[in-house]
């Protein structure tokens, strides 16, 4: 089996994988980082969004081998264990931006990409349009949108412009 090595959440990792292994499989099954979810498995729902070299991508539609040498950040990489939450995570908690929570990791990783591309002052229309690739089946979009606007602002204050990547 081919070997793959990459940096995940700041840590160098390696593994032997079949060529057909998806990045999301590698993260969940090899590295046991189960915060990244598989929802639709057809690149539509966004539950599997992670950052590859700082850019949001759907890990269910990316091969692990395509990430050889890349820096990958997952939801687990945003805050220190037992440390304070990342401002975007805190904003989701504060605004009740989740119901069942299944879509939340993907929503937060997508939200950070919106901040990267559009800055910290986000209006509702921009957020809704930019969340095109993330589906919440509880249909809790209202508070998700509020959380992203608040999280983006909080990131500007705290100087945390990006995830720890």
């Amino acid at each position: 089996m081919p070997a793959v090595s990459m940096t995940v959440n700041g840590k160098a990792v390696t593994g032997d994988v079949e060529a057909r292994t998806l990045l999301v499989q590698f993260l969940r099954e090899n590295l046991r980082l189960t915060g990244t979810h598989v929802g639709c498995d057809t690149s539509q729902c966004g539950a599997c969004v992670v950052h590859i070299d700082g850019i949001a991508a759907k890990s269910c539609t990316t091969l692990a081998l395509q990430c050889e040498g890349a820096k990958v950040t997952t939801i687990e990489g945003l805050a220190e264990p037992n440390g304070p939450l990342h401002p975007m995570q805190e904003a989701f908690r504060e605004n009740h931006g989740l119901q069942c929570g299944f879509c939340t990791p993907g929503m937060i990783m997508a939200a950070l990409d919106i901040v990267r591309r559009r800055g910290n002052d986000l209006d509702e229309h921009t957020i809704r349009e930019q969340l095109d690739g993330n589906i919440c089946r509880c249909t809790g979009y209202h508070n998700i949108v509020k959380a992203i606007a608040a999280g983006a602002k909080a990131m500007a204050k705290g100087g945390a412009h990006q995830a720890a990547e």
Binding site: G46, V49, A56, A57, K58, A110, I114, G133
Partner: peptide, 9 residues
């Protein structure tokens, strides 16, 4: 085309 994550790839 698609959504932001798709356009990134």
């Amino acid at each position: 085309i698609g959504d932001p994550q798709v356009r990134n790839r």
